[in-house]
Computed example of a mutant assay.
Amino acid sequence: MENHFRCKCPITSALDIIGDKWSLVVIKQMLFEGRSTFKDFVESPEAIATNILASRLKLLEEFGLIEKHKLPTNKKTNIYVLTEKGLALTPVLIEFTLWSKYNIQDFNPNLNLHTGLDKLEQDKETGFTSIIANYNQYKRTLLNP
């Protein structure tokens, strides 16, 4: 594996993997929107370019945040699923969402804030566990229809 890291700082090293404009968006789309195929990602409102998407999926797979499988019902189609390492970013994504709610909403009043966000904010650990469990159930149905 090629060394992608600029230095020994843990924050900088994490950002070397997930700190670009698209990696967390792809993970968010997988976790919260159920996107799993290349086509799903391309058709998202974020409008990621196909060459960037291919690069990010490869990088996330290389670092073990996602896995690529063949769709059981169509062996020509690849599906991407989060690994435990990728799911471990759930608290980060929730904290980004909350930060955005309190710091960005004035600038972007049309933020799509989930109705359950207030409840999640009151009991984050239960929320994280529930989101991960729901994703793992979804992942099982993708891989074993």
Rank of each mutant, 00 (worst) to 15 (best):
L113I: 15
P109D: 08
P72R: 04
G127A: 04
I66A: 07
F41I: 03
P45H: 11
L98F: 05
V25M: 04
D20T: 03
N74H: 03
I131D: 05
K85S: 07
E84V: 01
G34W: 01
S100D: 10
K119C: 04
E2I: 13
E125Y: 07
N108S: 07
L59M: 14
T73D: 09
N74C: 01
N3G: 05
K76S: 12
F128V: 14
M30N: 04
H69F: 12
I79S: 08
E2H: 11
N74E: 11
H114W: 14
L89C: 10
E62V: 06
I27Y: 03
I48Q: 06
N78R: 01
H114P: 02
V26F: 00
R140H: 15
P72Y: 00
S130C: 04
A14C: 03
P109W: 03
L143P: 06
A47R: 15
L71D: 15
K8V: 00
T37A: 03
N3E: 12
M1G: 15
R56C: 01
I79G: 06
N136Y: 09
E33S: 13
N110C: 01
M1K: 05
E61A: 12
Q122M: 11
E62M: 07
I132R: 00
Y80S: 03
N51P: 04
G86K: 10
L59V: 11
D123N: 15
G64N: 10
V26M: 05
T73Y: 00
L57S: 11
Q29L: 13
L59G: 03
R35H: 12
D16L: 05
A54V: 11
N112V: 10
L111V: 05
P145T: 09
I132F: 01
I11E: 12
Q105P: 06
I48R: 00
E84F: 07
K70M: 03
N78H: 13
Y80I: 04
G116S: 12
V81D: 05
I52D: 14
L98A: 05
T129K: 14
